[in-house]
Write a protein that binds this DNA or RNA. Structure first.
Lengths: 196, 196, 196, 196
DNA sequence: CATGAATGAGTGTTCATTCAT
DNA sequence: TATGAATGAACACTCATTCAT
């Protein structure tokens, strides 16, 4: 009997290693050699589990999103409408060290996506899910009379998501300007303004 | 007599070349060779005018911001307060092809800045100027009674700047979601909401 | 009871797989992984039946020759002398797609043989058999008065075999020059010139 | 003033190094590293003078052919028709150590050409020149009444060229069978048979 | 000053081989 | 016996940087 290895588990290990490197040193530092070393394997292992480097990067991006989604799912249990939306937005903003690193990873991937069609597609697919969630919550909030209905819900969704990403970037780049307090306050106030 | 060369002029030529490449093909395409070639010089020239590649990139970022600032200065002549603020925000958003490319450059630099202290410092310095401008215009608008004064002006400034950057990123990554129309509408509405 | 495996049969399967790959995609495509996969086994099996990759290649060359010899044996049944010789020569020339591929395999092995003593030895051994066959047929043809006897039979054999290989190479490399018609015509005319 | 290097000269050095390796150890041994080392330069130099490895290989093949052509030109001076043809054929056959190595190089390239369109094209172009030369000499020989005219000249040309290549391969692979004497004798007899 | 030749480490990727299970 | 995980050297190629001229 050969040594049996759970492929998904190994992929997970490698992807986690890639993620750690990207979080720690940026996406440019994520060379195949560095990833293999960080994962504790030789260069050659990567071929067994990934088609190529892009496959690793894409998986790392998906893993990061999955991680965020799972964390969010916990927080959302039992919530709906505006209350859930509040959690979604606050969760998508770098209010603790973990999320600061996740934002750094995200920004690195944005740059790559601009010149890599494959990555861009993943980026879009993942972003579409978040947008769908926000839009759904806005709709249920509207039906529940929690928010005003004089603005197109899609417009609101895009505004909220843009604000979240913009504030996230600024939190990382200009931490002196965008403090945790201000970050949270701006998000919450934006939601308050939706009230009827 | 030794050949007299205007150092700043040469630096400018090279930096402009680097900027063109980054705008056109992305920051990853900006190799020293490519930059030298685009500038019409040999590889070796770069050493005379720049410490290293990072020096070129930093200068290219500064040049990009300077260019944006100059363009903006033209549009602002004669304007003040809210009207000027509107121009500032609309100008900082990718509503035409030039600005789409500029946004791409910016996003690329964001990623780099997260792991390069030099780049980060420039990024912060440049961003501080824009923030100062927005804040000043908000203040004069407040003094002129053009906007409500029930919100901290710094908060407003950060919100506007975050929205601008967030929408800019989304315009590039998710053009199907953030159309030119929606982009402009969201910016203008944000300003409308500042009215007393 | 231990599993009983017919070593020769397993070797045969793997060698046949190697041969298929070389015929289809060239000798460079015959990696150990590709061979194992084509044979329907795992990488590891190869070690049990072959010393190393070269062992597989050598066997593949022998298998290819064996296959050609068997095909030829069918065509020769009942024939002798000049008539048999004609079949031998025409059969050794790429007049259909199968033989085009066989010629490709052969040419690939020629290159390898020049730097691999093992391969060279196999090549020589196999070639010696064909030469012996041609020479035998020439002798019986001579005894039957079917061919002139003013030229050394060994010279004739070498000339015929060289012509066959030379034309085969040119058929593959310069198909525009060496058409099927010309190929066949040149072979047959060469035999005609042997007539007394 | 920079160090001025004759590009063609450097290319020549590298190509010569590649040729030496191919002649000595076979075309598979001609890795870019090995070529650079053999040429006495670092890996990086190759980029200055060649687009990629294929460029080097193609150049090496062309250089080999050029070398052969130049050597032949010397021998042909003052000759024409059948006498010139005799020199052409004898020169294209491995009758000394230099030409044995050249033949080895040629055979290695044949194998590569079967899977590399670029190489195949060069191979064909170069071969076409030799064919043209042989055909021209056959024509002038025919006009001069030196050879019989009952066979298509193109057929004769292909036969002669195939014989030359076939004998060349066999000389390398089966030196015990195809001696220098027999090689020369078979070529010359082939020409004798063309006599009217 | 400017050139461009040269370097050599580094990139992603491939591969024959080994070996614990 | 058979598996397939794992290795690590090798591959072609790229790049920022150095430096003699």
């Amino acid at each position: 009997m050969p040594k049996i290895v759970d492929h998904e588990e190994r992929r997970g290990e490698v992807v986690a290693a890639a993620r750690r490197i990207i979080l720690r040193d940026g996406i440019e530092a994520a060379t195949t050699r560095a990833i293999a070393k960080e994962a504790g394997y030789s260069n050659g292992v990567l071929t067994h589990y990934f088609a190529d480097k892009d496959d690793i990067l894409v998986s790392a991006l998906e893993a990061s999103h999955r991680r965020i989604a799972e964390r969010l799912a916990d927080k959302l249990s039992g919530l709906g409408g505006l209350a859930a939306l509040r959690e979604v937005l606050l969760d998508n903003v770098p209010l603790d060290d973990d999320r600061v690193q996740e934002t750094g990873l995200e920004i690195g991937f944005w740059g790559r996506s601009l010149t890599s069609p494959d990555l861009l597609e993943v980026q879009r697919r993942e972003a579409a899910e978040l947008r769908y969630l926000v839009l759904s919550l806005l709709q249920s909030a509207a039906e529940a009379g929690e928010i005003r209905t004089d603005e197109d819900l899609e417009d609101i969704a895009e505004r909220l998501l843009a604000l979240v990403d913009g504030l996230s970037v600024h939190r990382l780049l200009y931490p002196g300007r965008v403090t945790d307090d201000r970050l949270e306050r701006l998000i919450l106030r934006e939601l308050d303004h939706l009230s009827p």
